[in-house]
């Protein structure tokens, strides 16, 4: 699948240039080790890595995996919310929700572009998503059954996403860091619009407040899981910390999310569905109950409430759009050919 351009962007080609070897030769272990040391030192000095710089193969692969998962999550993340665009309760809410979903499409596109600079094609990335080889955030496999879910998603899911994403604005890979700066700038409106929906419901009728509480009950635990497995279970943490793909551990991020969200729930007058949740004077943090990791792994493995629905919606959208993409390409080629004819 490698065309010439992506080959030229690939680390192997750059490595050839650095050590001046022929295509068929293989770098000695010592030479690779040397380059790796120089590379790690650059990151330690907070230098950014740009696409054409030499990088260890593992760095490239890890980044393709993480950035593409991130992009896929933005694209799949449009589906649960898209469900409510036609039924938003007012024009104001509808316009805001449309803008939010459009932002998510945009964020997916920034991230796919950043990922492509690592020498992988957009088509390969889509194939990985559509075949189930690549993952996306499992939170999007839960259904949005009431309007309050749109409020809860903005408040909790986007809230957790922001906590995850802000440290990535300083990550070592330049295109990823730049995409994240744009994403973070745009995302703060997402959380505020969600919280405002919750606030309006909580100040409304008894039924509306109950609807908000029900949404919080269903989204709370999946939001905590969204920040990833516990540190003890997280296999990539150490390497990711070194490459600044991660600045805080999953458990630290989760604690930060809980500490910031509990007072927000108090303002709404809602109860967080965790009987063990209480302020700990000593640590200065909230203690919280046990997370059902069995549920998390079930959803990751494809057994969540909406995994199949999400994937089929995505694959159908792609397949049904094929004739449009082909027609656009054919039209572009015809116009180009006409231009050439006129020139002759």
């Amino acid at each position: 699948m490698y065309d010439e351009l992506s080959y030229k962007l690939s680390t192997f080609y750059i490595a050839e240039l650095i050590v001046g070897i022929k295509k068929k030769d293989i770098m000695s272990e010592k030479e690779v080790k040397n380059l790796e040391e120089i590379f790690e030192a650059r990151i330690a000095r907070d230098e950014k890595i740009e696409p054409k710089d030499w990088m260890p193969e593992k760095y490239r692969k890890t980044h393709i995996r993480q950035i593409s998962q991130h992009a896929h999550s933005e694209i799949i993340g449009m589906l649960p919310e898209g469900n409510w665009i036609t039924r938003a309760p007012s024009l104001r809410r509808k316009a805001a929700l449309l803008a939010k979903v459009q932002d998510e499409a945009g964020h997916g596109l920034y991230l796919y572009s950043a990922c492509e600079t690592l020498g992988v094609s957009r088509d390969e990335l889509y194939d990985q998503l559509h075949s189930g080889k690549a993952k996306y955030s499992s939170i999007f496999n839960y259904p949005t059954i009431t309007w309050a879910d749109i409020g809860a998603i903005g408040w909790l899911v986007d809230g957790a996403a922001i906590i995850n994403q802000v440290p990535l604005c300083n990550t070592s890979f330049g295109p990823y860091a730049r995409a994240m700066v744009r994403v973070c700038k745009e995302e703060s409106f997402h959380q505020r619009q969600g919280y405002e929906i919750m606030l309006t419901l909580c100040r409304g009728t008894e039924e509306q407040k109950a609807m908000a509480q029900d949404a919080l009950n269903r989204w709370w635990w999946p939001s905590l899981m969204m920040l990833g497995p516990t540190d003890a279970e997280s296999v990539h943490t150490e390497q990711s910390m070194k490459w600044k793909l991660k600045r805080k551990s999953n458990d630290e991020l989760r604690q930060q999310f809980i500490d910031q969200t509990v007072p927000q729930a108090d303002i709404l007058g809602l109860t967080i569905p965790d009987p063990d949740l209480k302020w700990n004077e000593e640590t200065g943090h909230y203690d919280f109950g046990e997370i059902d990791w069995e549920e998390f792994w079930q959803v990751v493995k494809g057994h969540g409430p909406c995994n199949k629905e999400r994937m089929s919606a995505r694959v159908n959208a792609w397949n049904n759009g094929e004739w449009v993409r082909d027609a656009a390409m054919a039209y572009a080629e015809k116009k180009e050919a006409n231009k050439l004819k006129e020139a002759i």
């Binding site: 995409a179 656009a328 180009e336």
Partner: peptide, 10 residues
């Protein structure tokens, strides 16, 4: 940044 499109206008 970058993006995919069929032609310059798009």
């Amino acid at each position: 940044g970058s993006l995919h499109a069929a032609d310059a206008e798009m």
